[in-house]
Amino acid sequence: MSTTGANGVVFQTRGLTKVYDMGEVQVHALRGVDIDLYGGELLVLLGPSGSGKSTLLNILGGLDTASAGQVIYRGRELTTASDSELTEYRRHHVGFVFQFYNLIPSLTARENVAAVTEIARSAMAPADALTLVGLSERVDHFPAQLSGGEQQRVAIARAIAKQPSVLLCDEPTGALDSTTGIVVLEVLERINRDLGTTTALITHNADIAAMADRVVRLADGRIVDVHRNVEKKPARELRW
């Protein structure tokens, strides 16, 4: 896949719709979403539970498929991509951070990162990635031996170690207290700034929006507001 310049459009969605078929009922998670994401930008997706933000992120990351509409990643249409094309896309272009970390419990911090770097094209060394997130002392610990914040930082290290062009974070601080959450956000901020990784971050915490370049509000499967922060607040100054 070709890459465009740092400030070009990375993602473009048009009329993006997702309907979950839950047996007798149909749940409309997305009802026609049009949005563009730009290279190097830090975007915060804000909205209450069930507003469709996770669904949007999952479709952008190739974890889920749309029911209708279009997603274009750097000029390439994702909505028509096959399963194996989506796999290749995830493998080389996207880093994920989940609310519940989703580490592999039987692997140490270093091995969790290695599980991803082993299949990537130009990955950094797992230890370097863990150093970037401030965990150089904890590389040989198993997830169960780490605090929630540390686990989430391992997850971030795992996501950035392959040097993805986009980093998608689904409520990365949702399971953490505010102090730990801010540490995690500082890491994400630094990655976005230093590595220039386009980052989309989901939260239902409006206070976090202050660190974004742009804030997109979703409600009931639609975009209700797009707002550009004139002045970004550093993550360490956030309070909630």
């Binding site: 990351g61 974890l63 995830r90 493998r91 592999i104 299949i119």
Partner: peptide
């Protein structure tokens, strides 16, 4: 099932 999904999310191929 969940671990398989995680591996898939990271770009592991079905064959792998």
């Amino acid at each position: 099932r969940e671990q398989i999904a995680i591996l898939k999310a990271f770009g592991y191929r079905n064959g792998e």
